[in-house]
Design a protein around this nucleic acid. Structure first.
Length: 783
RNA sequence: GCGGCCAUGGCGGAAUGGUAGACGCGCCAGCUUGAGGUGCUGGUGGGGGCAACCCCGUGGAAGUUCGAAUCUUCUUGGCCGCACCA
């Protein structure tokens, strides 16, 4: 609808459609039904394409592709090779989130409450060699550039900023009192270096090297316990601080004292350095920990109200430093600066900016994804596949009956000659996270058949995307990865911009109740019948559990098929109904109540126009001028509503317009054609088929489609009314309405208002202390 | 815990600080029909008169203002994001 409107307003619109088609569901279908993932996928695409075409979407099908087309993922492989050469794609050992059910690695973003986002299984930590996009190299730019995205929702920018997570602080190096296993010091990250004199312990994550070097009895068991508990939901909810004293001690950089080193379950290896210094008086977690293990608590920041004892609540606000040697008397911000200077001068640390964002692990041990185009050679190491040999195609003959990665246990696919030395070597069998596929598709649409990823001419002409419309669920991951990929492509010379999406609109999601049968299987809404006694299965009559209203998803089967509405009422009714229901940015609980009303309106509009034909010439009358004014106000109102994405309001304005045309008196006939043509053209983006039908009836023999006509522009002369209805208030309460000339003087307006009987009654002879006249709006008497 | 959004009739929702509830759904009544549906007409926030009109009303409390659903503060509830992030 937006594409049709923008086209009418003179824009050259590219409205493409493609398919994000790699991923787990295809492999699951293959396992369950013995059908090849490709066949399953392309069948689904054919069904969905037909569905979209029935809706009458003005899509440019000549640019269509699927991400599982070798022509697409081959070009993606070329981009990956560029990124490898630019140091943006790296292989490194890393603690990864391992989904034991799906048998694959998950990105942090795919771990929800400690569980795999698809399998729901508790995620384990594993140390593996994996491919990473070094998105962290762009962290400062990805954060700063958010400021320039003035057509993005604030909410999305905020979510991205939080996700990137910039925090200023210091790294402090603590020398061990006695080196252990070759380790002489431990570095921590802190945002509160000002509280360094309030230190009472140092704590490291279970995965930290210092933890591993601890030989005390019980240490290994404690570490194993932490790892097993991992990120499971139970642990997070309990939030119980647990620790193990290693017996090691570190030296304070300034006061010469030593402090104990603990292993603590609340310290994360992934953030900062995996080690912290504990200042219980001014950090709640440290305080909980210190109280539990009876560690010292020394306050060093004094609130303005004076010294206070620390009980079970840490003091985390600003104040004045004390108990802190050379920092005494300073404010918290001043003390931070001062202590960082001192750390740097003494070689004990430095001020740093720390980022929450971590590198993007994109390796998946899966078949149905884009193969990472490198070859492992015993002599040459990791060698990129020469671009002339792309695409690295997925083999067709794969066996899903064995668990694990089918590419890995395929008999021949991975055995190749090294491109450098020609000795036997092995293909990489990891495939890409499917977020990679969706991180540059918008650029590919500009030149979808090119034998390079994108042609400069095409991307320079089309990008950035002027209006991106997608669900709020993409606020962080997809949009962040796309912003990263665009920068990577820019640095590789493929295009010349950093930000892919100039304007972003986040649609709400369509939600529906979910249903579960007695055997625990999810049921489709059409299988369920609601009776007074409760929900039952339509065929078997057995009781059905009604679940919560949530976003429609294939896995929960709480989906509805717009095809049913199209079949019964037609595409225009379906479109009109979907647009009229509620504001597009809001979630919509799907209900077909009201579809009949939408169908009624399409019928009504048809009768309104067809019933007025043929239109004869008629004399200009005051009534005709009134109808013309109504028409042009409708044009302005609908245009404004569409510009602001208030589609439900646009629908309401067209309803009002239709009501006004129907109510117009017979002597307004001279303005009837203009009104009927206008309502036809205004409703065309929403109901394109009906609009063309009506247009051809209004202009028999005409050779233009509504879709080709420019958008109507309201005539300012007709928008300006001759008279205006003013509300008259007394003490802010409405007492009357008066109709006055638009250019009536204040005095004329006031005397007209005072002439109203009801106004006089409200004033009741009291003194008028103030009179307000806001032209075209309101009159108010204060008595 | 931190950050953000939201709260308006039976329902979805309108409302540049200026007539709260547009428009639609639903419901009620009447006309049309043999009946039902469709269609058409009227009504539909609460209360009082039952007409003209008056009082109350946008989760709650206070404030700014001639005037607040809208701005400010506090508060309650719901939703979303992040989360032992040092």
């Amino acid at each position: 609808m937006v594409a049709r409107y923008k086209r009418a307003t003179g824009h050259l619109v590219m409205h493409p459609m493609g398919w994000d088609a790699f991923g787990l569901p295809a492999e699951n279908a293959a396992r369950e039904r013995g059908i090849h993932p490709g066949e399953w996928t392309y069948n689904n695409i054919a069904n969905m394409r037909a569905e979209l075409q029935r809706m009458g979407l003005s899509l440019d099908w000549s640019r269509e592709f699927a991400t599982c087309d070798a022509e697409y993922y081959g070009q993606q492989q070329a981009l990956l090779i560029d990124m490898l050469e630019a140091g943006l794609l790296e292989r490194k050992q890393a603690w990864v989130n391992w989904d034991p059910v799906d048998g694959t690695v998950l990105a942090n973003e795919q771990v929800i409450d400690g569980k795999g986002w698809r399998s729901g299984a508790p995620v384990e930590k594993k140390l593996l060699s994996q491919w990473f996009c070094t998105i962290t190299k762009y962290a400062p730019d990805l954060l700063e550039a958010l400021g320039g995205l003035d057509r993005w929702p604030e909410r999305v920018k905020l979510m991205q900023a939080n996700w990137i997570g910039r925090s200023e602080g210091a790294r402090v190096n603590f020398a061990l009192a006695e080196p252990v296993a070759g380790i002489e010091a431990c570095e921590v990250f802190t945002t509160r270096p000002d509280t360094l004199f309030g230190m009472s312990f140092l704590a490291v994550a279970a995965e930290h090297p210092l933890a591993a070097s601890c030989t005390r009895p019980g240490a290994a068991e404690f570490i194993a316990e932490c790892r097993a508990m991992g990120t499971s939901e139970a642990v997070i909810e309990q939030a119980e601080k647990r620790g193990f004293d290693t017996g090691l001690r570190v030296k304070h950089p300034f006061n010469g004292q030593t402090y104990p080193v603990w292993i603590a379950n609340f310290v994360l290896m992934e953030y900062g350095t995996g080690a912290i210094f504990g200042c219980p008086a001014h950090d709640q977690r440290d305080l909980d920990f210190a109280r539990k293990y009876d560690l010292s608590v020394l306050p060093v920041v004094q609130p303005p109200t004076g010294p206070q004892a620390i009980g079970d609540i840490a003091f985390t606000d600003d104040g004045t430093l004390y108990n802190s040697d050379f920092l005494n008397g300073l404010s918290v911000p001043d003390a931070k600066r001062r202590v960082i200077d001192a750390l740097e001068a003494g070689g004990h640390g430095r001020g740093v900016v720390n980022w929450r964002l971590r590198d993007w692990g994109l390796s998946r041990q899966r078949y149905w994804g884009c193969p990472i185009p490198v070859i492992h050679c015993d002599d040459c190491g990791v060698v990129p596949v020469p671009k002339s040999e792309l695409p690295v195609r997925l083999p067709q003959d794969v066996d899903f009956s064995i668990p694990g990665n089918p590419l890995d246990h395929h008999p021949s696919w991975k055995h190749v000659a090294c491109p450098k030395c020609a000795k036997p070597a092995r293909r990489e069998t990891d495939t890409c996270d499917t977020f990679v596929d969706s991180s540059w598709y918008f650029a590919r649409f500009c030149s979808p058949r090119a034998d390079v990823p994108v042609t400069r001419e095409a991307v320079d002409a089309w990008l950035p995307v002027d209006q991106y419309i997608g669900g709020i669920e993409h606020a962080i991951l997809h949009l962040l990865y796309s912003r990263f990929f665009t920068r990577a492509m820019r640095d590789a010379g493929h295009l010349a911009l950093a930000e892919p999406f100039a304007g972003l609109f986040t649609q709400g999601m369509v939600t529906h109740e979910s249903y579960k049968g007695a055997d625990g299987r999810w049921l489709y809404p059409e299988e369920v019948e609601k009776r007074d006694t409760g929900a039952v299965h339509r065929d078997t009559g057995e009781a059905v559990t009604v679940g919560r209203v949530e976003a429609m998803s294939k896995s929960k089967r709480n989906t509805v098929d717009p095809g049913a509405i199209i079949g019964r009422y037609g595409a225009d009714t379906a479109r009109w109904f979907i647009l009229s229901d509620n504001p597009p940015e809001r979630d919509m609980e799907w209900s077909e109540a009201g579809v009949a009303g939408s169908a009624r309106f399409t019928q009504r509009l048809y009768r309104l126009v067809m019933g007025a034909l043929p239109l004869a010439d008629a004399p200009e009358t005051p009534a005709a001028r009134k109808l013309r004014q109504v028409t042009h106000r409708a044009i302005a109102a609908v245009t404004h509503a569409l510009e602001t994405f208030a589609f439900n309001v646009a629908v309401a304005r067209i309803h009002e317009f239709a009501n006004a045309i129907a109510d117009a008196p017979a002597d307004a006939a001279a303005a009837k054609r203009e009104a009927l043509e206008a309502i036809t053209r205004l409703s065309a983006p929403m109901m394109p088929h009906l609009a063309e039908q009506l247009w051809s009836a209004l202009r028999p023999g005409g050779d233009q489609l509504v879709a080709e006509l420019p958008w109507l522009v309201a005539d300012p002369e007709l928008l300006a009314a001759d008279t205006v209805v003013l509300a008259v208030q007394v003490n802010g309460k409405l007492r009357a309405n008066i109709e006055v000339a638009v250019d009536a003087s204040d005095d004329a307006v006031f005397s007209a208002a005072l002439a109203e009987e009801n106004v006089q009654r409200a004033i009741d002879g009291k003194e008028i202390r103030k009179r307000i006249h806001v032209r075209g709006r309101i009159v108010n008497f204060v008595v």
